[in-house]
């Protein structure tokens, strides 16, 4: 009798586990290294979710921070303003249209994520960005209307160290870069290498260093350098930027600055982006 009861209990236990349902594998979240689609001025390899819109507005004030309290540390001096709107056709393809007031510039950027290597020690994401800028004002008539157009292309390579320090290298080829240099009538090109490091302090705050030396080709007097902080919350990024260049978009910013990077030539700027 004891045997029967034991067997009944065992069989109950066996059958209570005997459901045909099997759990499925959990979905793996999208692989990301940086949080935002750009560092300060240079693009990261990140895109946004398919179907999302990305709206951004940014300013670079034209007076340096050292202009003092009378000019509210540069904020009274007018600014370069850029607005842009992006749309993700896929998780890996972001198309962005921008307007900057400097030279009444329209700019189209197409960023495509190309490759990812999800390794614990050395994760890498590579993206390509091609774009075209069209300056509707400020290009000397003598140069011809064709010189209003500035195509450019970048390769973006990102990695992260210890999940805390994001690094990026952005070699960029820019065409027709000398439209404001009266010394030349023929078109010049430039090759620049954007470099940035972003330290993620916590889930919301990060600090960023960025340099954009021109390797070869036309450049203004000095290379562009910047540093700043990033705050992200609730679908927004807020960036606070200090640098020696008051240009914003790639086709203008990468060409260098007339001001040497240093305390006397620090210009404040900010950027707000919103994922919609």
């Amino acid at each position: 009798m004891k045997k029967i009861i034991m067997l009944m209990l065992i069989s109950l236990n066996l059958f209570s586990q005997d459901v045909s349902w099997k759990p499925s594998e959990a979905t793996v979240a999208r692989f990301q290294l940086f949080h935002s689609t750009c560092a300060l001025n240079q693009p990261t390899a990140e895109t946004i979710k398919q179907g999302d819109l990305l709206y951004g507005i940014e300013h670079r004030f034209n007076l340096p921070v050292t202009s003092g309290v009378d000019n509210l540390f540069g904020l009274d001096g007018g600014s370069t303003i850029r607005m842009h709107l992006g749309y993700a056709f896929t998780d890996n393809l972001l198309v962005d249209l921008a307007r900057t007031n400097r030279m009444a510039n329209y700019e189209l950027n197409i960023k495509q994520r190309l490759f990812e290597f999800n390794d614990e020690n050395f994760p890498v994401i590579v993206a390509g960005n091609v774009g075209i800028a069209y300056n509707t004002k400020g290009v000397p008539e003598a140069l011809g209307s064709g010189r209003k157009v500035q195509p450019f292309a970048s390769l973006i390579v990102n990695t992260i160290i210890a999940k805390k320090i994001g690094l990026g290298i952005v070699p960029t080829y820019l065409s027709n870069t000398n439209i404001n240099d009266a010394r030349y009538t023929e078109s010049k090109n430039s090759f620049t290498v954007g470099l940035y490091a972003q330290y993620f302090i916590n889930d919301n705050w990060a600090i960023i260093l960025e340099g954009t030396p021109t390797v070869t080709g036309w450049r203004d007097t000095y290379n562009s350098y910047a540093f700043g902080a990033e705050f992200e919350t609730g679908g927004h990024f807020f960036k606070f930027i200090f640098g020696n260049n008051t240009a914003i978009n790639l086709s203008q910013y990468n060409l260098g600055s007339a001001q040497k990077f240093g305390l006397q030539n620090l210009y404040f700027g900010f950027q707000i982006t919103r994922d919609l």
Binding site: D52, E232, T233
Partner: peptide, 25 residues
């Protein structure tokens, strides 16, 4: 017996960045 499970990585608020914050933070 009643058992159900939800794949939390697929939870979406229709905003990619907010989804990532929700997942990661």
């Amino acid at each position: 017996n009643f058992y159900f499970e939800v794949d939390m990585n697929t939870l979406t608020t229709n905003m990619g960045l907010r989804d990532r914050h929700m997942r990661d933070n």
